[in-house]
């Protein structure tokens, strides 16, 4: 049985019944690094809180390690580790005091599971008598991870551990997660950063409380139906505007230094002819320095496509 299973979980807030989670179902496999990818307000934190037994869903059911999140919440609390998004530890306690406290609260001790956190803890150990409030962002995050791991949970929930963290620290954090995976801990992590999706075994793309897609990052990318071009020109702003008006374009949007142009695949034209057509269209619009190449879609491209399709469906439903 999978360690985490959600079945049609729905959650609303307040009197207006604002929909936060909309019939979400997915399952996480044993030992998997599972990513919940979506922007702020997509419902990630609500899902985490339901799974960690902090909140009750309006409807639907979910189990963690086979325990029901409503009935067996005590058992679940014994076997999970959780790092909330805004978790800031006790600022006025030292690194060591924080760790010791959480170890004891979870009925464990630092010595008992030291091997599990060793690789992470050695990085902050030199500062163990420093107050947590005086640590930098990346250090706090490492300490928080140690605190969530110290009782050797079998499922680890990390809610936006890398938000607001610089790219270097983010890379390091994901390396730590990779190492943890080897200990056979099931990890569910949420993030608004699309580029982190490829570091997960499987991901769920989520927006407005509903799941857009659940699969391996590779499968999601390979299911991208359109042709994708990366176009570059000096006048970036005009380039986007012109490509947005290109006949047959399903989307044109900024993507790093390029503009990504998505075109419906059709059998008629040869690739080279297509490129020529775009370039001559741009030249006709006064952009003569444009260069373009066909490019592989990323998770972000897929997300954008799914988002706009979702928006479209939402609009037509109304």
């Amino acid at each position: 049985m999978e360690p985490v299973i959600l079945h049609s979980i729905t959650k609303t807030y307040g009197k207006e019944k604002k929909l936060a989670v909309d019939k979400v179902s997915f399952a996480v496999k044993q030992g998997e690094l599972f990513g919940l990818i979506g922007p702020d307000g997509a419902g990630k934190t609500s899902i985490f809180r339901i799974l960690t037994t902090l909140m009750l869903a309006d409807s639907g059911s979910a189990t963690v390690e086979g325990f029901d999140v409503v009935k067996d919440f005590k058992e679940i609390r014994n076997c999970i580790g959780y790092m909330p998004g805004r978790f800031s530890l006790y600022q006025d306690l030292t690194v060591e005091e924080n760790l010791k406290f959480f170890a004891t609260v979870f009925g464990s001790s630092i010595r008992e599971n030291y091997s599990l956190i060793h690789d992470i803890y050695v990085q902050i150990e030199p500062f163990k008598s420093r107050r947590a409030g005086k640590l930098s962002g990346g250090m706090k995050q490492k300490l928080a991870l140690c605190c969530a791991l110290i009782h050797k949970p079998s499922v680890l929930f990390l809610d936006e551990p890398t938000t607001g963290v610089d790219p270097v620290s983010r890379k390091e954090f994901w390396q730590m997660l990779k190492q943890l995976k080897q200990q056979n801990i099931t990890i569910i992590v949420s993030t608004p950063y699309m580029d982190e999706a490829t570091l997960c075994d499987r991901i769920a793309l989520i927006q407005n409380g509903s799941i857009l897609s659940v699969d391996t990052p590779e499968a999601i990318v390979s299911s991208y139906p359109d042709l994708l071009y990366a176009v570059k020109a000096e006048n970036y702003y005009r380039l986007i505007t012109e490509l947005g008006r290109y006949p047959g374009a399903s989307a044109a949007y900024a993507f790093g230094e390029h503009v990504h142009l998505a075109l419906k695949r059709d059998k008629g034209h040869l690739q080279e002819a297509k490129k020529e057509k775009i370039l001559s269209y741009l030249a006709g619009a006064g952009i003569k320095d444009a260069t373009l190449k066909e490019t592989k879609p990323t998770i972000e491209d897929c997300f954008i496509r799914l988002l706009s399709r979702n928006e479209y469906e939402r609009e037509t439903r109304q």
Partner: peptide, 17 residues
């Protein structure tokens, strides 16, 4: 744009431009 979805992020950059 921290935490903003990729589509809105791009719309935001349009405003910047």
């Amino acid at each position: 744009t921290g935490g903003v979805d990729p589509v809105t992020r791009r719309q935001f950059w349009n405003l910047i431009y």
